[in-house]
């Protein structure tokens, strides 16, 4: 009997912890979004964060996009050539990149590259009392520290996704046309016939917006809510990568089902 009650207490405690964590993260998100922007100070802060979150992630995005596009073209060619439809490589590369791979892979890389850095940075600021210090100076750290980082992530991810798609398709072109010798005209025309701007590129963009929201939200919250010790920060960083990767993959399924499920 005692054991049952103890287990129930344990279960209840976990549930309460989880729910209150969701509540706290919701508060942070709300503060970050409705934070009254002050153009004079917020804009330079946003620029600086765009640089560290977006610009510095560009290299990894471009390189991975290029290789993924090239591999897709090579694999696709090997399958399609059996049916004599190798000119459909362009279509295959473009559709799989634009609809699926670009938003998901970019978001996963982004979570590992920028999300973990955000968490570690905010966690370290908390550990060195910089957040408290700012609060005591009379500046809301949610507005000054959290909000620009959140917006920078939210803006950067769709841009990175577009770059990833474009570079990936270029990689597919390199392999398909330059190397395997597919006729360039049919490569493009097949692609243009099958890719729709709003249904495919637009939906990919919506996906990346959702992922951007989730990844930066998780990263910022884990940093802000971390235990301010070196162990706590390393745990928070791990949690950021794990939680945001799982959230990306789960949400991707839901979004894909909503967007393409009825076609």
């Amino acid at each position: 009997m005692e054991a049952v009650i103890n287990n129930l207490i344990f279960l209840g405690r976990i549930a309460i912890d989880r729910v209150s964590a969701i509540g706290r993260s919701g508060m942070i998100l709300m503060h970050a979004i409705i934070a009254r922007p002050d153009p004079l100070t917020s804009f330079p802060l946003l620029i600086r964060q765009l640089y560290s979150v977006g610009v510095l992630s560009m290299i990894i995005i471009i390189v991975s996009g290029l290789f993924i596009g090239m591999v897709l073209a090579l694999q696709g060619y090997n399958i399609l050539v059996d049916y004599g439809t190798e000119q459909a490589v362009g279509q295959m590369v473009a559709l799989s990149l634009v609809r699926e791979l670009a938003p998901v892979v970019t978001a996963l890389l982004f979570a590992g590259r920028a999300g973990s850095a955000l968490t570690a940075e905010i966690g370290l600021m908390k550990a060195t009392e910089q957040l408290s210090g700012m609060e005591m100076i009379g500046v809301d750290p949610l507005r000054r520290i959290i909000a620009p980082r959140f917006w920078a992530g939210f803006i950067s991810l769709p841009i990175l996704t577009m770059i990833f798609s474009a570079v990936g398709i270029w990689g597919g072109l390199l392999v398909g046309v330059e190397w395997l010798g597919i006729y360039e005209g049919s490569f493009w025309s097949n692609m243009q016939n099958s890719v729709d701007f709003f249904d495919d590129i637009g939906n990919g963009l919506i996906k990346s917006l959702v992922f951007g929201l989730v990844v930066t939200w998780v990263a910022v919250f884990q940093g802000y809510d971390s235990v301010p010790t070196s162990e706590g920060i390393s745990q928070a960083t791990t949690k950021t990568v794990v939680y945001s990767s799982l959230a990306i993959l789960g949400l991707d399924f839901i979004l894909t089902a909503l967007m393409f499920g009825d076609l």
Partner: peptide, 30 residues
């Protein structure tokens, strides 16, 4: 240092816009 950052962000934004245009016109034939 600020100029460098602003330049980087500018390039980043431009790259995003170019990528979207390429996707729209070349890939989807819009």
């Amino acid at each position: 240092r600020n100029r460098g950052i602003e330049l980087g962000v500018g390039i980043f934004m431009l790259a995003g816009a170019i990528a979207l245009t390429v996707l729209a016109i070349n890939v989807s034939g819009l």
